[in-house]
């Protein structure tokens, strides 16, 4: 069975390490916050100017002056801090944030990512994505393995305008967990019940399969 969006987030959450500062993008990445392993402490950074982002406020306690980068009302946890946008991106470019999780329309086998623009369609903008991917030490991309027509989104080369180059090292899709190195996708884990052949068929880029590939564990 291919993973649900929640399960993709759950698998990514297993990659979190104790004492990491983490920036979660909009969409599937936001769900990662629901699956933080019990025995570790992580702090979420919201690039509009907050460390220690907490859950949505209790109904009636929403504050127009406390939102996340998706413009949603949120709360701030004890020990959190607030700052301006220049300082926020200093944290990001200065590699003080250990992990960025974001979505993608396409990823290529050399680690390029495209996630902000489809030619001919309304372009909304890159927001902070270009700063995040250009700087983060660890980037995990959360995405569907194929588009709605079944075409692979893990490619030899991205066809869409790029957000960043040579930056993605890990990808978790609805079918697999893959690492990007040596100009190829290395298959690390399969979604439960998904065969290596299915993953091969859904991957346009070079896929390296070394030995027995285990299933993900949840």
């Amino acid at each position: 069975m291919a993973l649900s969006k929640q399960e993709i987030a759950q698998r990514i959450a297993q990659e979190l390490q104790d004492k990491w500062y983490v920036n979660l993008g909009i969409g599937i990445p936001t769900l990662v916050a629901n699956y933080i392993p019990k025995n570790i402490d992580v702090v979420f950074q919201s690039e509009n100017g907050m460390l220690g982002m907490g859950p949505f406020p209790i109904e009636g306690e929403e504050d127009a002056d406390l939102i996340n980068a998706g413009k949603q009302t949120v709360t701030i946890l004890k020990g959190g801090s607030l700052f301006d946008s220049a300082m926020s991106f200093a944290m990001i470019r200065g590699q003080h944030v250990q992990l960025t999780v974001l979505g993608a329309m396409e990823v290529s086998q050399n680690g390029d990512i495209a996630n902000w623009k489809i030619p001919g369609k309304m372009v909304k903008g890159m927001g902070g994505a270009m700063d995040l991917v250009a700087s983060a030490e660890n980037i995990i991309v959360a995405m569907m393995h194929t588009d709605k027509s079944g075409a692979s989104k893990l490619l030899k080369r991205c066809s869409l305008p790029l957000t960043g180059v040579n930056c993605v090292k890990k990808v978790v899709t609805n079918l697999a967990y893959l690492e990007i190195k040596n100009n190829a996708f290395y298959l690390i884990e399969r979604a439960p019940g998904v065969s290596v052949e299915e993953i091969k068929a859904a991957t346009e880029g070079t896929l390296i399969v070394e030995g027995e590939i285990p299933e993900m564990k949840f």
Binding site: I58, G60, I67, G70
Partner: peptide, 11 residues
Amino acid sequence: KRIEQRTVTPK
């Protein structure tokens, strides 16, 4: 001070 995305945790 309009809120763009009102997201809450239900009581």
